[in-house]
Design a protein around this nucleic acid. Structure first.
Lengths: 381, 381
DNA sequence: CCCCGATGTGAGCCCGGTCTCAACCCTAGC
DNA sequence: GCTAGGGTTGAGACCGGGCTCACATCGGGG
């Protein structure tokens, strides 16, 4: 009936003004609630607006206020619950502050990210939250920074960019977790990440992601603190799709000197690793210990439940959005960024490594965890 | 250095025109690649644009083309992997078609949804994809439809709105799944959903969500096909947060005549139900059978792995975005919406109910599954 | 009685693009 | 030599709000 006969034009202030029998300026004032307007005029305008069901065109409004009340969010993959949860934190906070969120997925592709940032800038978002795919190639972020448009990084820092970054103390928690594994007697600790890299990992590899490099840093430091050599051969990058992760897992566990503990960099990786372990007929933690980043609800339901490094992902989203909105509004961050800490949560997927006949020097000779470990383990649970 | 001294204005066509020594109109033509422009002018303009690193203001462009190349997506909860995955399907498809996505979360609140739709309309999105919280209260969607702005519904239909809706044949799969449970001997089948409702479920309850009502319809039909009374007392709505789900689960399992099978309406509910079952010290499927909607990777890792109703969630997102873009571009949907089918995937969480001494009439007297069931079960696995 | 400020009001510019229109140049055809 | 018609060009309208400015109008104080 009253529906779309040739996409009728939207109602504008001019229309409302005409209907109310006043000038456009007066109508605008009444609607925008500024300037001086007589009660009579205000009433007539508001009535006319109601009658015509007038709605301001936000695009037009944005154009001369220069504010779009929209923030751009660029993440690697919303399908990944890690980002899903962070995004939730961002959108909740944004909404409270009167902002909308344009979400762009990059599949962790550098080019897609560059593009995304550009598009969002073209759309004149008021600010950007980016989880950069690379901490090394950051010219596009540099450019954003130079235009003066508010920018907050999530999860990963960008080299040499003095931009507010919301992330947990990754090196620290990684050190703690690794020390825990070492104390239990593990020496062959593997680490699997989706991070894209050209060649196999070695001592010389420069890792592009600050987050991954910090995790590795924490591991290395723990090994060296204990006077142990770091097992470079067990660090695996490029763990993209489920199949490649399965293959990597199989390989790590069938080496002549196999991994006795596996650390998964995120939940998606964890799922594939666990699938592969299951297929190999190995059991956790008797045959392999397993540790993953992020504490999702399902990690409590596996047998055994999984020992995880919990990150306050939702809160990180909240913090990022809060910081960004502060920047947009030209305020200094209230109290700097809140300190967000990750936490090692002991459940059942980590145990002492299986005793192996042929172990090199420097290894502890027992395979059971010393008492003090068990007690420290239960402290946090 | 070259950075933000007092937020310098963006470069405009006028600036480029001046730099190239031509009129604004000519510069616009050269940049926009339309009309007649001499090679000389084109070159000078493009060079100037490059030099000044000119970028068109999409807002201004949208304003007089009337197209924002943006679609609005309104979902209940992105944190829920169901929507996470669907959103991924939507954004992937949108990007391919040159559209961006503004994402709004409603927490399944009707008011938030009304608000969200309004805001997106105000921002002049080219179209909307909505997973409506209610199939009954749909005036806001009705209004969208009346303005002629493209609209596609996801997951749930809206009563009396002749709008393209992307959903699986829910009644059918629910019927199949229920029949399977009945064949195994279950009579006390519970269903838990987040759907908000005023009062406890009864025969008279009108369910607000088409999706849930179809699922219930499928269940009821299966019961009546078998001449069995439908256990209205085991349908539980309002299963919001983790705690309430835990309580509901405990209650269902400790009734005088307890549920022997529980169907969870989504992954988030499933997690809490499983947690509660674990806490009660019950085992699946010996003590209770369990069935859930959506096939997430983690459902394979629990002990036992879970029997699920797999929905092609990603593809539904793709289909919704595709349909919307077709509408926006004024084309008829290529081949109507593709037929999307859900599938019952048999794993280990459903078994025959425990034999109970005191069973009413009409129940099968054995508790083991008849042979034909087992074979039909393995067909799909 | 006149001046002044406070209050109302309308005309019109602005944001940064798109696009229409009329004018201009130039050359081929008569 | 003159004109028709194509290729080029610039001026300026327009999208829909925000906002400035100039011009009332009115009441109170000196």
């Amino acid at each position: 009936m009253s529906s779309n006969n040739s996409r009728r034009r939207d109602v504008t202030v001019a229309d409302v003004a005409r209907a109310a029998g006043v000038s456009k300026a007066q109508a605008a004032r009444a609607l925008g609630n500024y300037g001086a307007v007589s009660d009579d005029v205000r009433e007539r305008v508001l009535a006319a607006a109601e009658e015509l069901s007038y709605r301001p065109n936000e695009l037009a409004r944005s154009m001369n206020t220069g504010k779009s009340h929209t923030i751009g969010v660029v993440v690697g993959d919303i399908e990944n619950p890690h980002f899903g949860l962070a995004t939730r934190g961002i959108t909740d906070t944004a909404k409270k502050g009167g902002y909308n969120v344009i979400l762009v997925n990059t599949d962790e592709e550098q080019d897609a990210e560059i593009d995304a940032v550009q598009v969002l800038l073209d759309k004149r978002v008021d600010g950007l939250i980016v989880a950069p795919a690379s901490s090394a190639e950051t010219q596009h972020l540099q450019r954003v920074y130079e235009t003066g448009r508010p920018l907050v990084l999530l999860d990963r820092a960008a080299q040499g960019l003095p931009v507010e970054t919301i992330a947990v103390n990754t090196t620290g928690i990684s050190h703690v977790a690794t020390q825990y594994l070492l104390d239990l007697g593990h020496r062959r600790v593997a680490f699997i990440s989706t991070l894209k890299a050209e060649s196999p990992f070695s001592e010389a590899t420069q890792v592009d992601s600050s987050q991954i490099s910090e995790r590795l840093e924490g591991m290395k430091r723990a090994f060296s603190d204990n006077g142990l050599p770091f097992p470079y051969d067990l660090v695996r990058l490029n763990a993209g799709d489920a199949d490649s992760i399965r293959n990597i897992t199989r390989e790590l566990l069938s080496l002549p000197d196999p991994a006795t503990a596996v650390v998964a960099s995120d939940g998606l990786i964890a799922l594939s690793v666990l699938g592969a372990v299951q297929e190999l007929g190995l059991s956790i933690p008797e045959d392999v210990s397993f540790l993953m980043y992020d504490d999702f609800a399902w990690t409590r339901l596996t047998t055994p439940p999984l020992t995880v490094i919990a990150q306050p992902v939702y809160d990180m989203g909240v913090a990022a959005a809060t910081a960004l909105i502060h920047q947009i509004q030209g305020r200094k961050s209230a109290n700097g960024s809140p300190v967000l800490e990750a936490q090692l949560i002991h459940r059942g997927s980590v145990g002492p490594p299986r005793a192996r006949p042929n172990h090199g020097p420097g290894a502890m000779d027992g395979d059971a965890a010393p008492d003090y470990i068990l007690s420290s383990a239960s402290e946090l649970s």
